[in-house]
Design a protein around this nucleic acid. Structure first.
Lengths: 216, 216, 216, 216
DNA sequence: AATGAATGAGAGTTCATTCAT
DNA sequence: AATGAATGAACTCTCATTCAT
């Protein structure tokens, strides 16, 4: 049921906190993440976060002086999740477009399908970003990173002749990003009506410039 | 400065509430809407809603027994806003595609640009929908309505030969809806990097199947 | 046991609070005063103040948004107590010096003997003044007022030939004030060893310049 | 900047604590003293005391099992400061009265001017004495000692013919003690209006029984 | 001799809600 | 139709204290 990291020992030698403490911190952040996903920021209670981690509020405050600090911790995890470092593989055979497109460009969707909580929390954070400049700043940075990632894939596709040669890559990146976000958002309200496969096909047509018959 | 309707008095003779009472109710809902836009559900305080409406909390509770009731009132207003009854004008000359496309299909974007608060509140409601089935139900209905609206426009466009003949209309409707939502969402975080015009051009290419040179 | 005001109906028509509310406010301040006297600022708990006034903490906060506000209320009462408006009676026969001296100049002592709590709280406030400029300002003002009051009495005494003609009135006022405070302070630690009568006689000698034999 | 003693290492071979431990204890007490002076008992936090001494709270509790123990340590230091062992020098020429008077009798004032913190803490302790019998007992003892010290000086002055022969020495000692305390107290609130020199002159007149003209 | 981790008990404050008037 | 007063329940946060290491 747990949403984020799968607790691995993780023996990092930080300055202030021991290995044991670091684990506890992560457990608390994970519990907070789960609660935000379940009940939103509105329903985030320090006492419950602590209880789920098997400690008391006092202990929670030992690791995170304020609730805000805890939320920052959650934010860091979420942002971390959306960081996808693998660059496009230029030598991969462009034969199977559909596979590559979905593997790479729609990977975020797969990710959020695995942990639908992730998008819920992202939505909460976006909401927060409206009002909290520090949240906004972090999200913006994470977003720029992601967009650049998409762009590099698109460029590779254009060069490989898989995508339309006149594709406006930066604009397309925005379209894809908006699309991904929008789909996740719609899925929260009515998941069953989204005709994923047909939607994907339409997007491919747009990117390749080829009609249905041609792509088969 | 007020965000939603400036609807005038509305003299309906309801059973329970007088005309004056109805006005007060609307004023309270409007104040609540503004507050949700400004601070989110998290920051919605009945006392402040009341104060902004020039009454006390006790009076607010006279009109809305519980906070939930008040929120339901806000929801009704938001859903109302997204209901767009005008059907596509089949006799309109298809000459200026770009105009029509933007006028009709991207109208929601224009709407939310006029009152960016609207999308903020919609975001909050979407968030809520995750957890509150009654909110989910209402949003889902509103969404279906909107999607059907888009579809009818798309169908008209295909028939008029403006859009590609092999356009998968239901899938395209979903793409457009997701796109619209996604763009609004991105706009909340980084409004300046969205290259609206170039993005619109790309979407047109997809819908018409024509490349840049051809469309000029 | 109650220390400060003796609850009188006191029908003042303030803007914001009704008569009933005003009474409650005073009762709360009185309870806070008592608690400060008993346990010091250190031991002042809002919950107990409320309980002693027969209400809950929430109600306390209805009247005094913060604890600081409540303390300010207590301060106002204490300062009020030390305000002595009666000017010296210039026509009074100077015959009985000792009576006048004690009646007027040492009156504060009498006051604080009646309600020893008063000095305890004053001591707490003085302590606070060290750190809180707003407390300091109020106390300073109250002090200046009192010093001027003493001075006017001293001047009257000098003119009436009761006190030494070369008495440095401003300096003497300071001496008397310091003396009064100091005695109260000592009394808190060892009340039984203060030989009040003999001390008063010594002060008279200083003010009149006459030795024991002469003054008899 | 430190307030109290700069007493060096003090290598006593106690049973329980080593030399190093004794030093640490003193450092902690000194830090506690400073904090009480700065923020009062109200603002005394063990964590901060420990931090200022370069250790953790756990270590502080190793030396002082409870907070009360630490406070007792502070009290001991303060009382120590007010212990003035030098007896009056009977052979000193009584020629310069003013010098002696100030040197000896008003020495406490000088002391508290050097370290104004000392009086602040004394004030805090006096406040405590109201409620804590053990503090009261210690302060009372320290006070008696000091009073006896003043008395011996006064007696010497009377015998030397410097002070009035009919001076009621015990009463005068109380007057001087109260005066000193009171002046310190006033100084905390309004230090600039105290006309020290003129006040001292008035006190001399009282002690010597001589008017201004005669004493020059 | 020293500490990181943990905690119980309680602090001030907030807020939706109620009710007599 | 409206409100001043009151409250219960809950919230975040604090702090002296303990204990295994």
């Amino acid at each position: 049921m747990r949403g984020v990291t799968d607790r691995r020992p993780m023996p990092r030698g930080r300055a202030k906190h021991t290995q044991h403490g670091e684990e506890k911190r992560e457990e608390l952040v994970r519990a907070a993440f789960d609660l935000i996903a379940e009940r939103g920021f509105e329903g985030l209670r320090t006492r419950e976060v602590a209880a789920r981690s098997g400690v008391t509020v006092a202990t929670l405050h030992y690791y995170f002086p304020t609730k805000e600090d805890l939320i920052r911790g959650v934010m860091a995890v979420v942002v971390q999740q959306f960081r996808r470092p693998e660059p496009p593989d230029r030598d991969s055979p462009a034969s199977d477009l559909r596979t590559e497109l979905r593997e790479v460009l729609l990977s975020r969707r797969r990710q959020t399908r695995q942990t639908p909580q992730l998008f819920t929390v992202l939505l909460e954070l976006t909401t927060r970003a409206t009002r909290d400049p520090s949240v906004k700043a972090i999200m913006r940075e994470s977003e720029a990173e992601w967009r650049e990632h998409i762009s590099s894939h698109l460029r590779a596709g254009v060069e490989a002749g898989v995508f339309r040669s006149d594709l406006d890559v930066p604009a397309a990146a925005i379209v894809l990003e908006a699309l991904t976000r929008g789909r996740s958002m719609l899925r929260m309200v009515s998941p069953e009506t989204l005709a994923d496969e047909r939607v994907n096909v339409e997007i491919e047509r747009w990117l390749t410039g080829k009609s249905k018959q041609q792509s088969h």
